[in-house]
Computed example of a mutant assay.
Amino acid sequence: MKLFRQTVYQALAAALFAGLLLTLLQQLGVTPLILQAEQYELAGTTSHAATSDHSHSEAAPGHHQVDEWAPQDGLERHFFTLLSNSLAAFGFALILIAAIRAGQLAGRWPQPGLPGGLAWGTAGFLIFFAAPSLGLPPELPGMVAADLEARQLWWLLCTSSTAVALVQIVLGPLKWKFLALIPLFLPHLVGAPQVMGPHFTHPDPTALAALHSLHTQFIWATGITNALYWLALGAACCWLVARAPLSAEGPAPA
């Protein structure tokens, strides 16, 4: 029970740090691209509504008057972004700390410390972002996507398969490490669910070109942001675990 409480406290501390860092990085490189895409999305919706026929316009008001809730721009949006980032980081931190503790017992995995933290962070980045992004790149507002449930199932397959592959690479006997190729490539051989047709449906060709350019920038920005986030989260988790090593006496004094 003591170890469980300790793990939760460590995960909370690491999550607050990593969540704040991710939010700041998003505000610098990712959010501006999202806001630009949202402007094109709004303009495209307005243009489509203006060119719709009269019968469609009469049928549409009941649909368009139902607005989904969204946080207001400014402090409220920043707060909910920080909250969601920290909650996600808390879940990932629990997984990382459990894995680091298991690594301590196994004695063969990356140990607590800066090099170990960067190794664990790299593993998290590869499992939860890089590998899934090969099949399902990050999406901008207004993009047409495949069925959500199908994407979630494929994401779970990809992350779990990549994790198994990394474990085999790190812990498997040298002559059997090649077996890691099976789970590593399996989800990509199955194929991620894809939408049939264009990803953007804006009626203006100039806007479409701009959206495709924004999407390319968005993929790079989210990739760099998530890489820094995962490295920071791995380093924070390892630093916290190193301050409270597994022992009968409990946490080491600060």
Rank of each mutant, 00 (worst) to 15 (best):
Q65W: 10
L118P: 02
A207C: 12
T201Q: 11
W120D: 06
A60W: 02
R5Q: 13
Y9E: 02
D53I: 09
Q27Y: 05
A130P: 05
L33I: 15
Y40L: 15
G135L: 08
P187W: 03
L28T: 13
P32I: 12
I182H: 07
R101W: 10
A227I: 12
L118K: 00
A93H: 01
H78F: 14
S247I: 04
A49H: 09
S213G: 14
M1E: 08
I182G: 06
A210P: 03
Q104W: 06
Q194C: 05
S160W: 04
L12Y: 02
A50I: 00
L228Y: 06
F128E: 05
P173I: 01
C238Q: 05
M1Y: 10
L21M: 04
P112S: 07
L214N: 02
L211C: 10
A49K: 13
G197H: 01
G124T: 02
A207N: 07
Q194S: 09
T7C: 15
P183N: 06
Q36C: 13
G142P: 04
L214F: 10
L16N: 06
P132Y: 03
T159W: 05
Q39D: 14
T46G: 09
S213P: 12
G107M: 11
L189Y: 14
G116S: 09
L35M: 13
P205E: 07
A119G: 10
G121V: 03
F178E: 05
S57C: 08
A145K: 11
T31V: 12
D67G: 09
A192P: 00
A11W: 01
A88W: 04
Y229G: 05
E68D: 01
R108T: 15
S86R: 07
Q39L: 08
A192N: 07
V66G: 08
T216E: 12
P112M: 01
S86Y: 07
T216C: 12
R77K: 06
L171D: 09
W109A: 15
Q27W: 01
H215E: 01
A98Q: 13
T45M: 14
A50E: 15
L28Y: 11
L83P: 02
L246S: 07
A252F: 01
G44P: 09
E38K: 09
M1T: 13
C237P: 08
P141N: 00
W230G: 03
A163G: 14
L156E: 03
T122R: 09
L211R: 00
P115I: 08
L136S: 08
D204L: 13
Q27C: 12
F129D: 06
F129I: 01
P187T: 10
L105H: 14
G223A: 14
A43F: 10
P245K: 06
G121E: 04
A89F: 00
F129Y: 10
L42A: 15
